[in-house]
Design a protein around this nucleic acid. Structure first.
Length: 376
RNA sequence: GGGGAGAUACCAAAGUGGCCAACUGGGGCUGACUGUAACUCAGCUGACAUCGUCUUCGUAGGUUCGAAUCCUGCUCUCCCCA
C-alpha cells in the first residue's frame, strides 16, 4: 500500500492524496461506509459503487467472527468474494465492541472475554487471534486490537487503558508481521492512537505508534461522549506527530461538521454509522440542511429529496413519497434514505478534496458547514 | 314478530361505585442516534393553565356524599330464532 500526498491547503492542515491498494486507489480525504456484518445495511454493492461512489467500505471483526464465522469466510475466499465487493475493505478489530458491548465483556491483560450478543456464548479475543481473524477475513486494511475507553474516563483509567492498548498494539504488530496474507494481495495493519481527552497521553500514544513504522495510523476513542472542541484538540495534537507521508484515519466520526473540521486538521479517512443508521431512523443529510423526513411538514412536499441530485435516490423520489414509505414501514424507504445519505457523505468529501486542490478549502468549509447543518 | 349482546378518546380495546382525564395496542406529533446488540430508543397525544382548573365514557333523566361503572326512558349497532 502506498500513500501519495498531492496537495496541502495553505490556510489549514487539510490535505488530499491517493492511497494505492491491491484492490484499487482511494482518493483522500475519503468517507468509508460502514458494513459491520459484511453488508452496508440496505444498500447493494452495485449501488455503493455506481451511485454512491464509495471507494472503500468497512467490516467488523467481532461481528463477522460470530456470524457467519471465519471458517465460512475462509471457504468463500475472503470477504471481498463473499460479499461481492471488489474494492478495498477495512476491518475494525472489535476494539470498539469492548466499549459498546460494555455489559457483555471482561478485560484482562491477555485480551477480552466477550459474551456473544447473539447467543450468549463466551469468546476470547486477544491481539494475536484478532490479527489471525482479520487475515482470514482478508481486509486490505486491518486494525489493531485496542481498548476504547469512554470520553468521561478519569486520567488514571485513561492512562492504564492506554498502556494496555500499547502492549496489545506491540503484540498485534508482532503477530501480524509473523503471518502472511491468505488470498494473494497485500494487507496493512493500522495502529490506533488512544489517550482519551488527555493531551499528554495522546502525544505518548502517537509517538509510540509512529515508532512502530506502519503504513497508516488511526485516531480512536473520540466522539464517545466528550465535547466536539475537545475532540478537535486531540486530533490536532496527534496529527502534528503523525508522519506526513502516511494516511490518517479518524475512527467512527462523524457529523458532516465533524468531518470537515477534522479534514482541516489533516485527517484523510473517516467512517461512521451516522448516514446509514440515522437514515434508517428518518434523518436525511442534504446540501440544503438536515431533514427529519417523519415530520408532518413533508407530507405534501413533492420536491426532490436533494436539489443537488447527488444520486438517483434524490432525483427519482419526492420527500412526500419518501415520508410515506418511512411511515408505512416500507423497506424501500430505508434503502432510499441510506443511499441518499451515503451519497451526501461521499459528495461532501469529494467536494472537500476539490476545494483543497483549488486552494479555497477554508472558505468553502465555513460556508458549507453553515448550510448543511441547518434544520429544515 | 320473539330472544340476546353491546355503545368508552383518531382506531381497537380495558375499566363494572371513590386510587379514572380513564390500562394497553395501533395511529399521530416531536426528539435522540458518531470504529452498528440499532427498520432502534425516549417523550407527548381531552382543553386551557405553574401547582392546578375545567369539560368527557351513545343520549335524557334518576339513585348516591361520590357514577364510565347502579336504575329508567330514548336512539343506534350487532347476533340468534321465526
Amino acid at each position: 500500500m502506498k500513500y501519495t500526498l498531492l496537495a496541502t491547503d495553505k490556510n489549514s492542515d487539510a490535505r488530499c492524496g491517493v492511497l494505492t491498494t491491491d484492490h484499487g486507489n482511494i482518493e483522500t480525504p475519503i468517507f468509508m461506509p460502514v458494513g459491520t456484518v459484511g453488508t452496508v445495511k440496505a444498500v447493494h454493492a452495485r449501488e455503493l459503487k455506481e451511485d454512491i461512489k464509495a471507494q472503500i467500505i468497512l467490516g467488523n471483526t467481532y461481528h463477522l467472527y460470530l456470524r457467519p464465522g471465519t471458517g465460512i469466510l475462509e471457504a468463500a475466499g475472503g470477504l471481498h468474494k463473499f460479499n461481492s465487493w471488489d474494492r478495498p475493505i477495512l476491518t475494525d478489530s472489535g476494539g470498539f465492541q469492548v466499549f459498546s458491548l460494555g455489559d457483555c465483556r471482561k478485560i484482562t491483560e491477555e485480551g477480552v472475554v466477550f459474551r456473544s450478543h447473539i447467543d450468549g456464548s463466551k469468546h476470547l479475543f486477544t491481539p494475536e487471534n484478532v490479527m489471525d481473524i482479520q487475515r482470514k477475513i482478508g481486509a486490505d486494511i486491518v486494525m489493531a486490537f485496542d481498548e476504547c475507553p469512554p470520553g468521561q474516563s478519569d486520567y488514571g483509567y485513561a492512562k492504564k487503558s492506554l498502556e494496555l492498548t500499547q502492549r496489545w498494539l506491540e503484540r498485534c504488530v508482532k503477530q501480524f508481521d509473523a503471518t502472511e496474507p491468505l488470498y494473494g494481495y497485500h494487507q496493512s495493519l493500522f495502529p490506533i492512537v488512544q489517550g482519551c481527552v488527555y493531551k499528554d497521553l495522546r502525544e505518548r500514544a502517537a509517538e509510540h505508534a509512529v515508532a512502530l513504522n506502519r503504513e497508516g495510523y488511526a485516531i480512536g476513542g473520540l466522539a464517545v461522549g466528550e465535547e466536539a472542541e475537545t475532540m478537535y484538540e486531540m486530533i490536532q495534537v496527534v496529527n502534528w506527530i503523525l508522519p506526513q507521508d502516511k494516511p490518517r484515519y479518524l475512527m467512527g466520526v462523524g457529523t458532516p461538521e465533524n468531518i470537515l473540521e477534522a479534514i482541516s486538521l489533516g485527517v484523510d479517512m473517516f467512517d461512521c454509522v451516522m448516514p446509514t443508521r440515522n437514515g434508517r431512523n428518518g434523518m436525511l443529510f442534504t446540501t440544503e440542511g438536515v431533514i427529519n423526513i417523519k415530520n408532518k411538514k413533508w407530507e405534501c412536499d413533492f420536491s426532490t429529496i436533494d436539489p443537488a441530485g447527488l444520486s438517483f435516490a434524490d432525483t427519482d423520489y419526492s420527500k412526500a413519497y419518501l415520508r410515506h414509505l418511512i411511515k408505512a414501514d416500507e423497506i424501500l424507504g430505508l434503502q432510499i434514505c441510506s443511499i441518499h445519505n451515503l451519497s451526501f457523505y461521499l459528495w461532501l468529501v469529494r467536494e472537500a478534496r476539490q476545494h483543497i486542490l483549488a486552494g479555497d478549502f477554508a472558505e468553502w468549509k465555513t460556508r458549507t458547514i453553515k448550510k448543511v447543518t441547518r434544520r429544515l
